[in-house]
């Protein structure tokens, strides 16, 4: 089995290869900053939320609930629901991260976001050579910097930046995830889990708000991968 290292080289590699996702995160951070201002969340509040929570989707949902009488229980429950997908993502890093020290592993996980996670997995899954344990931290810190800077800029600057869709930047996430997905392809065994995940995700997205569709789709697809007979292999 390949060695898992945790060094400066891996950290820098993760940081260097994360500029495309940092660009996409930056545009979303601008939008968050602008919306936070409109929701009467002050600059300090918006920045501390970006700094300590660092989870875009749940921060947007929080703005929706923001007001003079904050519904704390509802806020924390929605945060949990929106971010529950992290549990699956963290589990998928297990084969490599269980070989790091607790401080390295659980420290890096604070910076785990959808995009950095996907990049890290693509990096770890390569079969040649050693694995960079610090890759997630390097990538996460880059995205973190972009998220903080854009939150501040969006909140402080005039809201005259316009819609990111005008520049096609809203498509950046879709493009990044599509490219990463083509790299994760393992063969015919993926057909059934991926089809089921897509169907369940689309249906759930129609029926429920937030990010439930990621959890529901991934669970359906991965449970099928574990328990249903494989195509062509005859394994039951």
């Amino acid at each position: 089995m390949s060695r898992v290292s945790f060094d400066r080289a891996g950290l820098l590699r993760g940081a260097r290869e994360s500029w495309p996702i940092a660009l996409g995160v930056f545009t979303y951070g601008l939008v968050f900053g602008v919306l936070a201002r409109q929701a009467w969340l002050g600059a300090g509040g918006a920045l501390s939320m970006s700094a300590f929570v660092f989870a875009g989707a749940s921060q947007f949902v929080a703005l929706d609930l923001w007001g003079p009488d904050l519904p704390f229980a509802g806020l924390f429950l929605t945060t949990l629901a929106v971010n529950l997908r992290h549990v699956l993502m963290g589990a998928a890093l297990g084969p490599w991260f269980s070989r790091l020290t607790p401080l390295q592993a659980y420290g890096s996980l604070f910076f785990m976001n959808d995009e950095s996670w996907a990049l890290t997995l693509a990096r770890c899954s390569r079969e040649d050579g050693d694995v960079d344990g610090a890759y997630l931290l390097g990538s996460g810190l880059t995205v973190y910097a972009a998220w903080l800077a854009s939150t501040a800029l969006g909140h402080l600057a005039v809201a005259g930046l316009g819609d990111p869709a005008r520049y096609g930047l809203d498509f950046a996430f879709t493009a990044v995830f599509l490219a990463l997905l083509t790299g994760l392809r393992r063969g015919r065994q993926d057909i059934l889990p991926w089809t089921l995940a897509a169907l369940v995700a689309v249906l759930t997205a129609r029926l429920m708000p937030g990010k439930w569709h990621i959890l529901a789709g991934a669970l359906a697809g991965s449970l099928a991968a574990a328990w249903l007979p494989r195509f062509g292999s005859g394994r039951g």
Binding site: A92, A201, V202, G217, A220, S222, A225, A226
Partner: peptide
């Protein structure tokens, strides 16, 4: 049995993010 489950998570998570978005 959990190993194929865990190994398939990266793909199914990405598909679940992408399908409704696309």
């Amino acid at each position: 049995r959990w190993e194929p489950f865990l190994q398939s998570i990266p793909g199914t998570v990405l598909v679940s993010i992408l399908a409704p978005a696309v």
